[in-house]
Structure formats: C-alpha cells, structure tokens
C-alpha cells in the first residue's frame, strides 16, 4: 500500500521544478514521514538535492525541526521551505 503526498514548493525550489507550485510524491504507507519524503524527492530529482539539504519541512504551517522524522497524516498540508529572505 502506498500513499500520495502533495508538497508545496516555493522560490528556488519551485523554479527547479519548472515553476510548479506543488509536486506529488508517493511513499509506502508505513513510511509516510518527513525524512522519507525528503529522501524520496532527492533520489527522484537529484537537481533538488542541494536546496532540499538546506530546506525545512512545514506541516500545517508549522516548521518541523531539522532532521526530525515526523509522521505525515492524511490531509496534512506539507510544504518545503527553502531558507527565507523576507524583509
């Protein structure tokens, strides 16, 4: 069994994905976690590796601490947040 996870993309990361504001990644249902998600994106899209490595994941608009493996639940809004540059 596997599950599709929609991931919101922004800024440089969005550009790497031809300006698509989201991608869908499929993970085995028992492996739906933030670290597995990042690893899967990196292995499918090597061009994203350098930026993924410096990005954080947000679930439902809350940052997940770097390198922390958090379970992604059904209907969670998942976003990958490159280093910010507001202001």
């Amino acid at each position: 069994m596997s599950k599709s996870i929609k991931c919101l993309l922004f800024a440089k990361l969005k550009e790497i994905f031809d300006n698509n504001s989201e991608i869908t990644i499929t993970l085995p249902i028992d492996k739906c976690t933030t670290l597995n998600l990042l690893n899967e994106i990196k292995s499918l899209y090597p061009k994203s590796i350098y930026i993924i490595n410096i990005s954080l994941v947000a679930i439902n608009c809350e940052y997940i601490e770097k390198d922390k493996d958090v379970i992604i639940n059904e209907n969670d809004e998942v976003a990958i947040i490159p280093p910010v540059s507001g202001g």
């Binding site: 954080l56 540059s85 507001g86 202001g87």
Partner: peptide, 30 residues
C-alpha cells in the same frame, strides 16, 4: 525575527546578470 522565520523569499534582478534568489543569513535554516 521576520528575517529569521517568516516564509517569504526575494529574488534580486540585476542589469547585467541572471537574477538570484536570496537567503537571509539570519534564516532559521542556518
């Protein structure tokens, strides 16, 4: 703190080179 945590990004456009997405050195990512 806005420069550290708020998910907003800026892209800088120059007169003679390719534009560049900026990273705040304060970004919480670092």
């Amino acid at each position: 703190t806005v420069k550290t945590t708020v998910p907003i990004w800026k892209k800088e456009y120059y007169d003679d080179s390719e534009p560049n997405w900026k990273n705040n050195c304060e970004s919480c990512h670092y």
